[in-house]
Every structure is written in C-alpha cells, then in structure tokens.
Computed example of a mutant assay.
Amino acid sequence: MPHLTEEHSPQTILRAGLQAAGGPVALACSFSVEDVVIIDLLQEVDRSVRVFALDTGRLNEETYEVAEAVRERYGIKIDWYFPKREAVETLERSKGLFSFRESLENRKECCRIRKIEPLGRALEGLSGWITGLRREQSVTRDAIAPLESDAAHGGILKINPLTFWSSAQVWEYAESRRIPVNRLHRQGYPSIGCAPCTRAVQPGEDERAGRWWWENPEHKECGLHRR
C-alpha cells in the first residue's frame, strides 16, 4: 500500500486508492460538505465511481434537498440503501421512538439497524470504499490514514482522501467550486447525521460535539467506521 502524507493532494490519494483497490470502489455519501467535495473531485479523477447513501428513515429534510441538488448538478445516480423494515418495526414497537437516548447500548442498537446493516449490503462485492473522514474532526478520527485496510468489512480498502485537510480547506474548495452544500452547515451543524441525534455546536466545541451530545466524546461513532 503506498505511503501517503500531508504533501499529497486528495486527488493523488484518490488515484492511489483506486489503483490499490484493484477492483470496484464506491463513495459512501452522507451529503456532508466533505462528501460533496469528494464527488466534485471524482469528476476529475474518475467519474465511473459509484455513489451510495444510507437512508436511515430519520434524516433531515435539508439532507434530502442537497442529495437532489447533487444528483442534478453532476448527473449521477445515487444508490440508496434502507434498513430492513422488520428490524425497524420491531425496535420501535418494543422500545419506542427514542430508545437511543436511554443508553449507549440502545443507541448502538439503533445505529446497527439503521446504518451498519445497510452499509454491509452496500459494500458487498466492492474492493474498496471512499469516505469523507478527516483527522481534525474528532478524537475518534485523529489517527486515520489516507488508505486503510478495513478489517470490519472483510479487509477491503478504505480510502480517506481528505484525511489531512482542515475544515477551512474543505470550505475554501467548496466555495471556490460553488458546490451544493447542506443548509444546516451554515446553521452551526459542521457534522450532520440523523435529525434526533444531531444538534448545532457551540463556540469552542469540536466539530462532532453535536452528534449524540449526551455521550462522551470517545463514544461518538455510529459503527460505520469501526477501528
């Protein structure tokens, strides 16, 4: 696997990752500003890379709006994956609509049903997947590498082209290219997930402080990016 550093651009990391994967690769898109930046970069690097998204059933309207704007801007098909109906129905019938706020165990159960299981289906048959992870985002991500073997998903390659970029660099690119941006980002939401699990951050808080804000920082991952 090639050694990539801060000196390498996201385009270089993407090209290296696509070559190293040696097979089909797709972008997991949550329609964050990072993910839309990567879609824009892929127009230069490789337009054939598939884009998929997870519809948890609890997304913000603003997320759907930017998804449509992205689809129209780039003329791309977005492969949506949903959680299994039976699992969601069983969860909500047995524990109600907000069980994820009652305990870490319950929150992980909800994420497992709504995110992790659909992701597993989305990654079937792939040699690699692309994410918008950045080291600067949180304490749970400060050791990520541009290219990683994803043991949680059979050892496929995980490509993180924005690993070394700061939030300022992401926004500079987004504004220079005038890409579609989720309206919530400009309302104090640097990180956007499911609507009931996301709030705006306060001055001085880290970027993911608004995700599952009732939990400790070291727990603030849904399981999509297990290490």
Rank of each mutant, 00 (worst) to 15 (best):
G23L: 08
G193T: 08
V66K: 08
Y64M: 11
S138H: 07
A209D: 04
L126E: 06
G96R: 10
E175Q: 09
K108T: 13
L91A: 11
K220G: 01
P180Q: 13
H153N: 03
G17P: 04
A67K: 15
W165Y: 01
R107C: 03
N216T: 08
G210A: 08
D46K: 07
E117A: 12
G22C: 05
L4Q: 05
S94P: 00
R15H: 13
K220T: 09
V88I: 15
G188P: 04
L104D: 01
A195Q: 11
N60S: 12
A168W: 06
C194S: 07
G223Y: 10
C110N: 06
L157N: 06
E148P: 00
S176Q: 11
R226L: 13
A200V: 03
D40A: 05
L18C: 11
G188T: 05
G154E: 05
N160T: 00
E44Q: 15
L41D: 02
V33L: 11
P196N: 09
G75V: 11
A145N: 03
C111P: 02
A26G: 01
T198K: 07
E117K: 15
F98R: 12
E207K: 09
R178G: 03
I13K: 03
I76D: 01
L27T: 06
K95M: 14
E6F: 11
E62W: 11
F82D: 00
P190Q: 06
G75H: 10
L4W: 05
E109L: 14
Q43M: 14
G57T: 07
I13P: 02
I159K: 02
R199F: 07
R50H: 11
G22S: 08
R186P: 00
I39M: 09
D35E: 14
R50G: 03
R15W: 11
V33S: 03
S191Q: 05
I192S: 04
V49G: 07
R186Y: 14
A20E: 13
E7I: 09
V66F: 13
E62S: 15
I156S: 00
G57F: 12
E117T: 14
E148H: 05
P2E: 05
I116V: 15
D40W: 01
W171H: 06
M1N: 03
A122G: 01
T56Y: 06
E68D: 12
T63E: 05
E89P: 11
R58S: 04
R101P: 00
I144Y: 04
D40E: 13
G125F: 14
L147E: 09
E86I: 15
T140D: 00
A145D: 01
R211E: 09
S176H: 05
D150Q: 02
K77M: 13
R227T: 14
N60A: 14
T12W: 11
T90G: 03
W171Y: 09
L54D: 00
L157P: 06
P217G: 04
P10E: 02
G223F: 10
C197A: 07
R183H: 10
I144G: 01
